[in-house]
Amino acid sequence: MTGRNRLIAVAVLLVCAIAAAAAYALTDHQRPARAGAPASPPTGSVLAAWIPHDPGLADICRTALPSQARDTLALIARGGPFPYRSDGVVFENRESRLPRHRTGYYHEYTVVTPGSADRGTRRVVTGGVGEQYWTGDHYTSFQEIDARC
């Protein structure tokens, strides 16, 4: 094998290793929860351990959210009761705007919109390992909620 061929082989192996690492990082490695059982929340303090789950999504500080969104987050933390029957239902991520995970990983909650005659367009979507996302435009765009600020 010539020096040039060795260099090409090393480059190919390096590209394969990077691709495998990226594929591993983009997949969900949690064990699926038992049927009907909620996913367990992360251990430790969310404030101390917050790391963005998708660096491609913009972040938003919890304190920058509308007060109604912070109210919804408090209800989620307490486990309800929620004002809408559809709060807590599975969010299917059909638009694939959030990181890809198994069906049932995400759940959506209504953020009250003052003056709206219906549920409005604002939602908080939670993930199975504690991440939280904000959408003010009914899933057209998302921002990951940073609990540290």
Score class of each variant (00 low, 15 high):
75 L>H: 05
75 L>Y: 02
75 L>K: 15
77 A>I: 00
77 A>M: 02
79 G>M: 09
79 G>F: 05
80 G>L: 12
80 G>D: 10
80 G>W: 06
81 P>F: 12
82 F>I: 09
82 F>K: 13
82 F>T: 13
82 F>R: 01
83 P>K: 00
83 P>S: 00
83 P>H: 02
84 Y>D: 13
84 Y>I: 06
84 Y>M: 07
87 D>E: 01
88 G>P: 03
88 G>T: 01
88 G>E: 04
89 V>Y: 07
89 V>T: 11
90 V>T: 15
92 E>A: 12
93 N>I: 08
93 N>H: 12
93 N>G: 12
94 R>K: 15
95 E>T: 10
95 E>G: 13
96 S>F: 06
96 S>H: 14
97 R>Y: 03
98 L>G: 07
98 L>V: 05
99 P>L: 02
99 P>D: 10
100 R>L: 14
101 H>M: 01
102 R>S: 10
102 R>V: 06
102 R>H: 11
103 T>L: 04
103 T>A: 14
105 Y>L: 10
105 Y>R: 06
105 Y>G: 03
108 E>M: 10
109 Y>I: 03
110 T>G: 04
112 V>M: 06
112 V>W: 00
113 T>M: 09
113 T>P: 00
113 T>E: 14
114 P>W: 05
115 G>W: 02
115 G>F: 02
116 S>K: 14
117 A>Q: 11
120 G>R: 13
120 G>W: 12
120 G>A: 13
121 T>V: 09
122 R>P: 01
122 R>C: 09
122 R>Q: 13
126 T>D: 03
126 T>G: 10
128 G>L: 08
128 G>P: 14
128 G>M: 14
129 V>Y: 08
130 G>K: 14
130 G>V: 11
133 Y>T: 10
133 Y>Q: 09
133 Y>N: 13
133 Y>L: 12
133 Y>P: 12
133 Y>C: 08
134 W>Y: 15
134 W>C: 08
135 T>M: 05
136 G>T: 08
136 G>F: 05
136 G>I: 10
137 D>P: 03
137 D>M: 03
138 H>E: 09
138 H>G: 08
138 H>T: 07
138 H>K: 05
140 T>V: 14
141 S>F: 00
141 S>Y: 00
142 F>H: 08
142 F>S: 10
142 F>V: 05
142 F>D: 07
144 E>K: 09
146 D>P: 09
146 D>R: 14
148 R>P: 08
